[in-house]
Nucleic acid binder design. Structure first.
Lengths: 337, 337
DNA sequence: ATGAAAGCGCTAACAG
DNA sequence: CTGTTAGCGCTTTCAT
């Protein structure tokens, strides 16, 4: 690969001059500039981002990192697109890593990001006491958390109103006549699932329906877990008439089991999922879902990160985005009596 | 961030010694090693990958890049996981970028990868004459192509037997009694779609069914395109009895339209999709699909890349993986007469 | 307007 | 076994 020196020689100038035209800083004689540009093109020269970053002070690398909890979850894919669009608009490059909910990998990638001298990082902490994330923030690196908050530390964050989103979903089911509604939850240590549960319980209480703890099934946030929890629900003697799934992977798992049991949705069982998917209408019946604005979350997070990189001292902010209940057919009609 | 020098001072040794314990190269006095390790921990020191990479000769960065055509497509998500698992097993870090089928972005990210001094790159070329990809390979950077081959250039590649996969799918439909089968294709300039079409036509010819060009609908590789093409098919006066969708996004779009028209699958219309998804069983009816081993493609591609990085002169190889027809209910029973 | 040179953090060759 | 030192490719004073 050609370097500055090669270009300088070819153009008959010093490397400083080449660097100047590269960054079109200061005054460079138009003639010289042209010569240099020609040399750059001729050599197919690309400045090394690595050398640049080594030289640059923090905040000037034009590089951010994004550490993704689970790339199999379409929600994060939306977030990625949002981050990316915003970043490319601002002239930033992104490096992303997926840690598949594996704590060791999370640490590994967080370390890599740090040692890649990123200007800042977007992180979805594993849970609210995520030591890795906290340590990282304490080093002073600009960080924006998404999806999940962190306890005991002040940090920029963009989240969604999980409680409200869940409540609306449950209220729809109640309005439709359901009284026994199961909640298929992800791990309780993840705050989002607790918040969704709070919304679930609130809706029930508001309508004078006692919360039956046996209807709250807790697993992890995977497709597989959705299957297991749904099987459990179907085995119950006083089976609920509706399901509220804690995330989209759980929803998909639940649907698989429901279909396998040849249940007719929504008549035999109603279901609402947390997280919409662009292909929710390809499901049969089309899925009623609490839509999180994943793209917007990504966009806002990137935006906040750039602001913090520019001004490290600005007060931290918490942005809470609204969910939207997408009413389709899976929530359906009143339950059979 | 602490650097080598800080650690050296703290441990009372030279930076060379610190570097040695870091790379546990050569002999270092166990006592000294301990002191250094202690200093490293105390300062929470992390060697800069940037500086390391600047210093390293090509092939020693322990960093590979992966440029993804469309992260919304679950197929690539599987590939990512395969690449990642293999890479982390081999001690490589990955940087990935998604270009959302946007040629300008593809070039941008390819350039960034190059200027990040990656040791090698995994690429799914936009099409077989993708200039960017070809230029890149010509610079001598180790590259492995996946999913799509490149014309006129010798490069390592791992693909799938698209022709065979498509043929099996169509043969199943024929066996089920279908005679009029539509193919919802992605862009013809992408070789995979042409290969799938060849398989489609072969199956038809093998069973003495004339190929009706009006049944081959060409769009792009998106969900939206799947919807449009399916609407077209449904408007045909001599509507086909089965659909073969060119990729999973197209499949999902097709399903959405089919359900919207209240068609009963597979009785009113049978469908087989190219590309399986882990939630194909969550669809109703469960989707019959040609499963591409995405994870395995990623694993193999990473493996080949590491081999090429180690030995640039080895002859290039083409790995062709088999697809597997996952017969579920959407392909269904014979068509109504 | 341009060039010379220092130095970002690290590794490796060489000396001791 | 350990220290000294020369760069890797670039940006940025400081001179000219």
């Amino acid at each position: 690969m050609a370097n500055l020196k090669d270009v300088a020689i070819k153009a008959g100038v010093s490397i400083a001059t080449v660097s100047r035209v590269l960054n079109d800083s200061q005054k460079v004689n138009p003639g010289t500039r042209l010569k240099v540009k020609k040399a750059i093109k001729a050599l197919n020269f690309q400045p090394s981002r690595v050398a640049r970053r080594l030289r640059a002070q923090s905040g000037q690398s034009k590089l951010i990192g994004f550490v993704i909890p689970d790339i199999q979850n379409p929600f994060y894919v939306d977030v990625i697109r949002g981050v990316e669009d915003m970043a490319s608009k601002m002239g930033y490059a992104i490096i992303m890593s997926n840690f598949s909910q594996d704590a060791a990998k999370e640490k590994l990638y967080l370390d890599i990001m740090r040692s890649e001298s990123v200007d800042g990082l977007i992180v979805a902490p594993a849970h609210e006491h995520d030591r890795e994330a906290i340590n990282l923030i304490e080093t002073g690196l600009p960080v924006v958390c998404i999806d999940r908050v962190l306890a005991d530390i002040d940090v920029d964050v963009v989240v969604v109103d999980n409680r409200q989103g869940a409540r609306e979903a449950i209220e729809l089911l109640i309005k439709l006549g359901h009284r026994r509604i199961a909640y298929l939850s992800g791990p309780q240590k993840i705050p989002t699932y607790r918040e969704r549960q709070t919304g679930y319980e609130e809706a029930l209480r508001n309508h004078n329906i006692a919360v039956d703890k046996s209807l709250i099934k807790v697993g992890d946030s995977t497709h597989q877990s959705g299957k297991i929890l749904t099987e459990k629900v179907l085995k119950m003697s006083d089976r609920p008439t509706a399901l509220f799934a804690g995330n989209n992977l759980i929803t998909l798992g639940a649907l698989e089991v429901l279909h396998a049991h040849h249940l007719h949705l929504p008549v035999d069982m109603s279901i609402i999922g947390f997280d919409d998917m662009y292909w929710a209408m390809s499901l049969n019946p089309p899925l009623t879902a609490v839509s999180q604005p994943g793209y917007e979350i990504g966009r806002r997070a990137a935006e906040m990160l750039f602001q913090r990189i520019t001004d490290v001292t600005r007060p931290t902010a918490k942005v809470t985005l609204k969910t939207k209940l997408m009413i389709r057919r899976s929530s359906g009609a009143p339950p059979r009596q």
